[in-house]
Design a protein around this nucleic acid. Structure first.
Lengths: 346, 346
DNA sequence: GAAACGACTGATAGCGCTACCATCAAGCCT
DNA sequence: AGGCTTGATGGTAGCGCTATCAGTCGTTTC
């Protein structure tokens, strides 16, 4: 009774599991952390005991004992709430498994350096860099000069021996363009993403490549600049749709801008998709919440975030041993999701 | 050197601070946890030492020693990414301070019970219930039967000795309606929120009250049902705007539906705000990302989330001592944010 | 004036886990 | 055969903090 005063709800500890399995706590610890040197039979007994009690290790104790970095920084300034939301879900999901803390740090357009400093001061062991920060020179330099591990999400470039998780933006954009071409579209407008992000260039390059491949001319007046926000998609869309020879399809570099294109099309009395096809990129929740639902490129953001966490934690562990994962990038599979915003060209 | 092998980056511990301040570690601990019985002068010395080293306590150790519940469950199924995003930011911000873990758990339309079970199995000490779950009979009952502390965010009803953080939806909606009336609008359409959420009823009641107050008739054909999603706002908007006598203003029960109204208005060649004023509710990022930016009710979601966390942690602590905070609800201040989607009635 | 009290501080003993040996049996070499 | 690894375990000693209790003082109370 005296003890229970000091103890949480989860009364079952490693010792009890060990006792039940007839081994020492140390062996249980080994089984849990997947150590190799445990006899298969012993392992089985321990596993049974674990299941018997529904035991799950105490994260705080583990972290304390390991002197593990419990803290992962997540720098953000992504304008798309939908994207951020998915990212957060992925990150949190993994943090739950890994038992680590997420320190969210918002950073203004010029505040990258300060934000990094702040996270460092709070003792993070590594940092996750979602777009558009994953392309920020300042942020990356600040991180590198501190020699703190980080993983870039959805960036196109991999520098030094950094870590990155991304999809093949070039191929994805090319695929989507091919899809439009296959639908009979010959006049395909393109709204580019923010110029400071590598993915923007990749997507544009993919679009160009697919056009060339189909021997369609690249018409400069059908390519407009946006910056990944809904708002930034409005003017380009209007320009494209009020041009003397207007495109029969618009490929926006992300869903937010595609949504803007839909809104402009409606304002101009153009029906989507019968008179105009519109496609986006990312497959954020926005794509399915508007009407008509967007045909878009599914980028498994949550999955990518999860992987980013995994990679980062691995690297932190390696670093502690004086090693490093070295340059490593994980390319995820994308998918063309066909919905209601596309139809055969008239 | 032998020791440092076992130790994280954050070399400075309580002992060093204590030594520097010429007190025992225990006293430092007292200062940090804000214990009353410390001589002001001692406290000052300790504070100085803390600042000197830039010391910050090790969360893992603290949680271990306190046997504190490191886990807070966050059930979610909110369709609005923008809302969720803000909520997450607030929750994570506080979790950083409090040093606790967030376990995200998505729950399907019928999965409330299962989701609660899962969180319990993972040993959460309390649960945060954002809308629309904060109005879910099933979820609340599941929580109550388990006697696990929870805090309802943005719900209108407070039951038993529960905890809640919300704004005064009735007053907020009334204020907004008054604002429209002050602009000269006499024909004000209303799009209701999901019927299973108490806030929907409150907002509608506020709208009605303001009309009555201004001696304007409540016209049933100007009140339509939505369900808080963008999509659900489309049909009601269209119905309102194609009615024989159409409203000069539309008050949607949240920003997502207001955005839908804007899109429909554009499709029908109605300029916002010169021909039609549209207002939303919540002030999610969506409100400012679309064009024109929405006049809306600012609901400090992040702040509310932070407070919810605080309340919940407090309650968990109380429970551990055998007490309870009792019924307690925190009413936050709302604000009418005037942007570009409203203008004087023609 | 002695007992009792209160404000303040320190020593001690864990919280639940893992790193780091030590151990001990079984193979393997020269 | 004696010293080697090598594989599988257990014992021990913390990780950095806090709860608890045991003091040490001045101050109050009867």
């Amino acid at each position: 009774m005296k003890k229970s005063k000091r103890r949480g709800r989860n009364a079952v500890t490693m010792h009890e599991v060990a006792e039940h399995a007839g081994v020492s706590p140390m062996t249980v610890s080994r089984v849990i952390s997947g150590d190799a040197n445990v006899k298969p039979e012993t392992r089985k007994r321990v596993d049974a005991a674990i299941k018997h009690f529904g035991y799950s290790p105490n994260v705080a104790a583990r972290n304390l004992a390991r002197a593990a970095s419990v803290h992962i920084g997540l720098l953000y300034n992504n304008p798309s709430a939908a994207y951020m939301n998915e990212l957060l879900v992925g990150v949190l999901e993994h943090s739950r498994k890994a038992g680590c803390q997420i320190l969210l740090e918002k950073c203004g357009p010029r505040g990258e350096r300060a934000a990094v400093e702040k996270l460092m001061a709070d003792g993070v062991g590594g940092i996750i860099l979602p777009p558009p920060l994953s392309d920020s020179r300042v942020a990356i330099d600040a991180l590198k000069s501190r020699d703190i591990p980080f993983v870039a999400v959805a960036t196109g470039r991999l520098e030094g021996n950094g870590l990155a998780v991304r999809i093949d933006d070039f191929e994805a954009a090319a695929s989507m363009t091919r899809h439009l071409i296959a639908l009979g579209h010959r006049r395909i407008g393109f709204i580019r993403g923010a110029p400071n992000q590598h993915a923007s260039a990749e997507r544009y390059a993919g679009y160009k490549a697919a056009l060339t491949e189909a021997q369609l001319p690249l018409r400069a007046e059908w390519v407009k600049q946006g910056s990944f926000t809904y708002r930034s998609g409005l003017l380009p869309s209007e320009q494209l749709l009020t041009a003397p020879e207007r495109p029969s399809a618009i490929f926006a570099s992300n869903d937010d801008m595609a949504a803007a294109a839909v809104s402009v099309a409606h304002r101009l009395n153009l029906d989507v998709p019968s008179q105009l096809s519109i496609v986006g990129f990312d497959d954020t929740p926005l794509a399915t919440s508007i009407w008509p639902a967007l045909t878009t490129v599914l980028q498994p953001v949550a999955e990518m975030a999860r992987l980013a966490m995994e990679l980062l934690l691995l690297e932190i562990h390696e670093r502690r041993e004086g090693r490093t994962l070295g340059p490593r990038q994980q390319i995820m599979k994308f998918e063309i999701v066909k919905r209601d915003s596309t139809a055969a060209a008239v």
